[in-house]
């Protein structure tokens, strides 16, 4: 458990391990499009495909952080676009609570992100990854500084 950022005294790694949970129908397709369009973005993200962002239980995000992920991203279809009608509306509420709780307990909110990326937004996907990586890196560095 020593790698978990829940512990203090972490060293900033050169490469981060950020887990991205992407819905199959929009965001995963958007990430594929970034590929077919050869858009370049940092290699710090590892994608896990889920059927719908609505599949995401906040506990999965927490577990992921506890196990040692530097950051977590959940990405789904834009509101109204959900392949399963309304999954993204529910997950938006769940993740809002999670985000508030993490922050309340002093976990840097930049560790956890959520985004809407559609199947045609390859460029947005690349931008989202860039932002998330930057944020997580900043959070890691800041944590080391305050701990150090």
């Amino acid at each position: 458990m020593s790698r978990s950022h829940f512990d203090s005294g972490e060293k900033v790694k050169k490469k981060l391990k950020i887990i991205g949970f992407l819905c199959n129908w929009c965001s995963y397709a958007g990430a594929d499009l970034a590929g077919t369009s050869r858009l370049q973005y940092p290699a710090d993200i590892r994608i896990i495909r889920v059927p719908c962002s609505g599949r995401m239980n906040p506990l999965l995000v927490l577990k992921c952080l506890q196990e040692g992920a530097d950051g977590v991203l959940v990405s789904g279809c834009h509101p109204g676009d959900c392949h399963y009608q309304e999954g993204n509306y529910y997950v938006r509420r769940r993740m809002l609570i999670l985000k508030n709780l993490l922050e309340y307990f002093g976990i840097d909110k930049r560790r956890f992100h959520m985004s809407w990326v559609s199947a045609s937004e390859g460029a947005k996907w690349a931008d989202v990854v860039k932002k998330v990586v930057e944020d997580v890196r900043d959070a890691c560095e800041e944590e080391v500084k305050t701990a150090g």
């Binding site: 309304e86 509306y89 529910y90 938006r92 509420r93 769940r94 909110k109 959520m114 998330v132």
Partner: peptide, 16 residues
């Protein structure tokens, strides 16, 4: 439960 309900315009200022 509010977790089993939603409004289309629920706040999403935390979403990228």
């Amino acid at each position: 439960s509010p977790l089993t309900r939603y409004r289309e315009n629920d706040s999403e200022d935390f979403i990228i």
